[in-house]
Amino acid sequence: MQIEAREYEYANDYKVLIESYSGKPEHLLAIMQDVQKHYNYLPRLAISMISQHVGIPVSRVYAMASFYKAFSLVPKGKFIFRVCDGTACHIKNSATLLDQLQEHLGIEVDETTADGLFSIETVNCLGACALAPVMVVNGKVYGKVSPGDVERIINEYGGQSYASQHKC
C-alpha cells in the first residue's frame, strides 16, 4: 500500500481523532466513522494508522471500509448529492432525478467532479418516504423533488456553470 508523502502532513490530525478511542476492536467502526466524517473519506495513511491502533491487519480495515456503505476510499466532493433510491422514492421515479443529476454534473454515481465540488451518491432509504422522491445535499433534505427542480438545486450550491453546460 503506497502512501504519498504529503499525506503525512495530516498524521497528527489523524492521530488525535484515532487516539480519542481506546484500541479495542469494538471501537474500530466508530474510529473509521469519525475519520470519514472529518475528511469525507478514509485516507490511506489513516487506514494504516487505524490498523496499528486497534491491532487489526490493514487488509481487514480496508475490507471494512469497502464493505460498509458509510465509508469512501476516495475523496468526496464539497457538496454530496445523495439521491434516495428507497422503494417509495424508486416508484416515484427517483431514477430520473439521478439521470438528471448525472447529466448536469457530467459524473456518474460515486464519482466526484474534477474541481472537487460535487459528488453523487445513492442511498437506500433516508426514512423520509412520505416526501418521496427525496434528495439530500450535505444534510439538507429536499422532498418531492421533480426532475425540473434538479437544476435549481445544483445552482443553490454554486453549480451554475455545470447547469449551463448541459443546455444544448
Partner: peptide, 26 residues
C-alpha cells in the same frame, strides 16, 4: 500470521485481494 489478503467489498462485487490491489507489506 500475515493476513495480507481478505475479502473486499460485498454482495456480487465481493472479491479477494490486497488493499487497493497493490503490493502489501504484509
Amino acid at each position: 500470521g500475515r493476513t495480507a489478503i481478505w475479502s473486499m467489498f460485498r454482495g456480487i462485487d465481493k472479491r479477494i485481494g490486497t488493499p487497493y490491489d497493490e503490493a502489501s507489506e504484509d
